[in-house]
Write a protein that binds this DNA or RNA. Sequence first.
RNA 1: CGGGCUGUGGCUCAGCCUGGUAGAGCGCUUCGUUCGGGACGAAGAGGUCGUGGGUUCGAAUCCCGCCAGCCCGACCA
Length: 504
Amino acid sequence: MSNATAITPTRAQDFPEWYQQVVRAADMAENSEVRGCMVIKPWGYGLWENIQRQLDVKFKATGHVNAYFPLLIPLSYLEKEAQHAEGFATECAVVTHHRLEAQKQPDGTTKMIPTGELAEPFVIRPTSETIIGAAFARWVESYRDLPLLINQWCNVMRWEMRPRLFLRTAEFLWQEGHTAHETAEEAIVETRTMHKVYEDFMRDHLAIPVIPGEKTERERFPGAMQTFTVEAMVQDKKAIQAGTSHYLGQNFAKAANIQFLGRDNTRQLAHTTSWGVSTRMIGTVIMAHGDDDGVIIPPRVAPNQIVILPVTPKADTRDEVIAACEALAQTLRTQSFAGEPLRVHVDKRDLQGGAKNWEWIKKGVPMRLEMGPRDITSRSVAVCRRDQGPKAKEFVPKEEFIQSVTERLQEIQDALLARATALRDANMKKLETLEEFKAFFAEDSEGGFAMMHWAGSSDDEDTLSKDLKVTIRCIPHGDQFAEEGKCFLTGKPSSRRVVFARSY
RNA sequence: CGGGCUGUGGCUCAGCCUGGUAGAGCGCUUCGUUCGGGACGAAGAGGUCGUGGGUUCGAAUCCCGCCAGCCCGACCA
């Protein structure tokens, strides 16, 4: 094979097509016969399981507990909060019948005809504020019942027009946290706490630096008072929203009637929040770290952090080599990395070595080890790091490797974060004028994150977005964005820059 | 929901214009040679040509209906 890279086309040639090919080459997911719905294959699901488990620890550590609520939501629930309902109306799947009747056709086949129409249709949850709100209303009577800190891991469905594996699918997996509080202050603290949890998780676990900030009114979650977001930059310089945290004020409490008797013996409405991240994060990881040979998964969340490839050139040494590989794997598994036992796999399949090697490169396993007869004799292993070139190989004495394995994994984790941070920083620009802005986002230019002084209206934002296909990703927190200046569109004074970008 | 395109072995597609009941590459199986390596050769498995109807002696190919998918717009974790 003479291909310079494992993936065709390369990122530079056609990024969206590269993405599709990478997902396929990594065997992470595939399109299913159900429109817009994907099959998540073991390698992709393994990544999700790690994300899920590690986030769950953080949720528990911040006082939350898990629960589960129904998939189906009475249609009337969605009518209780007008803004919310309108926000999701165009993408709801509706269940209208509850039984099928077999009907024999003249040609001998059988058709199943829906019967038993429901008096009130159900909507398959696009998000669960309404039905969880109804439960909260039953559970909360006194200020002593607050705060209520609940999370659920589940699937939701939004009938998207243009699905793409992991990035936008009709059905997707996520977690949705829902909390109710006695005061607005407490609810806002909760919203910000979870926003911070997402920011930290993205950086420390997924090796993706994000810009934390607040959404403008136009981009806000339907029905929310405030929406906080973490925005990541991926390699085509577009932004992707990786997680959101909403302060819902009393809007949903009012709609669902979440009332409690306060310390002053008056009836009050609770203040609620909701926050979530989804399987989209997997797409974000792929686009943030992948290269022209496939996916690169950060060690902390990789389904296998190390794959051992036995080199078995001769049949008579094969058993010995495999036994040595198994023994090494066992030794490594007794060690921990980032608080979890090392995940090590020995690939014993009877395939050609090169084919196997490239398969794991495309899957993005952080570290590959080769061990053959010569290594057994010399008591060494060949170490290949996925953040380096496919040919890069270092022979390390086995004992030394065992001693240093977790440091080596951390080096990869750090290298990925450094690389992603460098990409982002190189493509964030402070611009001052509309001309500069237009040039920055012109069809043939690189694009990126434009940091702009902004004091325009929602209508201005709308017009700008439609003309140039860019949006305000967020009004970022952080001192580096705070400075006096003038709005690049209206000339009005501004005390903070906002981040504009094209987005997924 | 508006505009364009496409439905042929597991995947990507050729064949259709100029009707005569199926081809390639990849993948898969077996054997052999190779192999610290995404190799090569040989043999082989696998297809109601989206679906229903029409024209015809004969339809993957022509005509009509239906269904599904893709791309471009509005929406989006």
